[in-house]
Design a binder for these strands. Structure first.
Lengths: 264, 264
DNA sequence: CGTGCCGTTGAACTTGGTCAAACGGTGTGG
DNA sequence: CCACACCGTTTGACCAAGTTCAACGGCACG
């Protein structure tokens, strides 16, 4: 259950296994379970907790008066919310996508736990940077990409992130609990348009998505279609590249040759 | 010149005046000047510097092959870039909007300076959170708002942020170096549409924007039009609210009564 | 006095949104 | 076991917001 969290602390944030385990022990004391599609907190709630996703997917979103919704972040196991709170109250809501298990700690407790470990503060900053990089991509994708591109890009991002959490590196299919409605709310499109574009993608044979299982047949081709460059997700190389030691990356914009086996 | 930086460290980040001044001294050693519309770094550059804007406006953006551009962040005096770098190389570019003065420190030097001061690490995390909150808004605005709303929202944000940096609190007009082209690149719209929507806004009499001076006559009305709630910018109350001590905010979504004199 | 950037305006065109209806699986109660 | 309701998905027809293309005016700068 805590696998994703510990692994992320280790390979993403550079925290030692012992430290990660200690923190995991702290975290494990306050487990909470929610069913799929349930609010975790809503706009206006006091921002007094830090929450760490341990299992399942969740999202942060804005709900508008006219009924539309915009998802601003997808959270997977290991992702943290609430440590980034600059205000006393939430300016958005959060809800589960699949059934979710998360740890919920009062902010001061979390901070106390964090400050015990040298380098954790820095690790948290790293995590915030990561989220920012993803958000920058979202802004560009929503602002400038067409419908199919937006969806292709989102699917690439989620697929890679999900795959990075899997221990079995050979697996091509991942658990994908998003509904088309959720994709619409991520990409700023209408449900109808999402359906059409997804079926377009399906018809190319680049991906199989049935029920809750997503398999991407040719990630390179899909990435090209969605102008997706995995570099911004960081540490992709370390997980995927087997040989070549520390393969230096190429310029991100120019579609340079990535050394990832998945991108051939 | 360093006013904005020091002030932000003080009232936004909760750093003491002495600490801020010491850091300012460090920072001042590596000043750089660029003219308007010049790249500061580009996509693919090594991310080896921390840069602090001291005067003028800048932005981070993505440049695409088809010639379109998307601005993902607007930087004003006091804003920092590069402390949020999760990767060894930039995944985006940055350029000045107006002429800009900024401090440029090698990342290790900056970190060394930072770790001298207790609470600075936390302050940086606070700053990152702030940026994230703004980016969340952008995602929603670009994803779900119409053209006029997007522009109204952006102008409100920039106006409030600019005003917060001004020492003269009564001033209603701020220096506004954005071109319509820049607004288009922020909002994901075309230049033509931006022009039309801006002239629509002008015709309402809610704002005057001539040359580089922006004056918002009725911020409340413009905010309503752009569904802009200043709460996410944080510390707005502390700057604007004179009486009422610590006026508690109302729910952000419901357009509750803000106590800001500017929003009447 | 040219040149170039920025702003402005008109007209045709395209993408994606909206509305509406139907389909298919799944869980529930009779 | 079957009928029903619900949820997510699918499809068609029409519509509207915003894009694209194109041309022009004004102002600053060399």
């Amino acid at each position: 259950m805590l696998d994703g969290f510990v692994r992320k602390l280790g390979w993403k944030l550079g925290v030692s296994a012992e430290e990660a385990q200690s923190l995991a022990d702290v975290v494990q004391r306050q487990l909470r379970h929610v069913k799929a599609r349930q609010d975790i907190y809503v706009d206006g709630d006091p921002a007094s907790y830090v929450r760490i996703i341990l299992d399942g997917w969740a999202c942060r979103y804005h709900q508008f008066e006219n009924g539309t919704r915009q998802i601003v972040q997808i959270l997977m196991p290991g992702d943290i919310m609430g440590h980034d709170t600059a205000h006393a109250y939430q300016d958005h809501s959060a809800c589960s996508i699949s059934p979710v298990v998360f740890a919920q700690l009062p902010y001061p407790d979390f901070m106390a736990a964090v400050t015990q470990f040298p380098g954790m503060e820095r690790a948290l900053r790293w995590d915030l940077s990561m989220v920012q990089a993803i958000q920058r991509q979202w802004i560009s994708v929503i602002g400038r990409f067409g419908a199919t591109q937006r969806i292709a890009h989102l699917i690439c991002e989620l697929y890679v992130r999900a795959l990075l959490l899997e221990s079995a590196k050979e697996k091509r299919a991942v658990d994908f609990p998003m509904a088309q409605r959720d994709i619409a709310d991520c990409t700023g499109l209408s449900l109808v348009q999402v359906n059409r574009s997804i079926n377009l993608l399906r018809s190319t044979g680049l991906l199989y998505w049935r029920h809750r299982s997503l398999e991407i047949v040719d990630l390179g081709a899909l990435a090209k279609m969605g102008m997706f460059n995995p570099h911004y997700l960081g540490h992709v190389d370390s997980l995927f590249a087997r040989d070549g030691g520390d393969a230096r990356r190429s310029r991100s914009g120019t579609g340079g040759q990535d050394t990832l086996p998945l991108f051939r």
